[in-house]
Amino acid sequence: MEVTESRIGSATTLKIVGRVDSSVAKALEQKVLDVASRDGHIVVDLGGMHYVSSAGLRSFIILAKNARAKNQTIALAGMSDEVGEIFEISGLLELFQIYDSVEAAVAALPR
């Protein structure tokens, strides 16, 4: 797994590439908490994430819970069908705004 961080306007973009399972969940969680501690909305680019395990999902739940406490919007962009299904059956889609691409997510973010 690789995570790269960048900024588009006032939003922070996290690009996650690779598989997210228990071996990397801790690192992702740290990164996610770090990003969530800052202001501005968060767009997570999942175009390169081809698998997420239940331990990986925990990082996303932590991100969502922390963001909600601060009224931040979390957008997930470009997730594959498989990953989308994992989120769906885990009941987590509701926690996030889902977009096809990062561009669409950024355009839709509240100003």
Binding site: A64, S90, G91, E94
Partner: peptide, 15 residues
């Protein structure tokens, strides 16, 4: 046994 779309407990209210 496939999951049915329920989130974990303590994540969302009035679910």
């Amino acid at each position: 046994l496939r999951r049915s779309g329920n989130p974990p407990l303590g994540v969302m209210e009035h679910k």
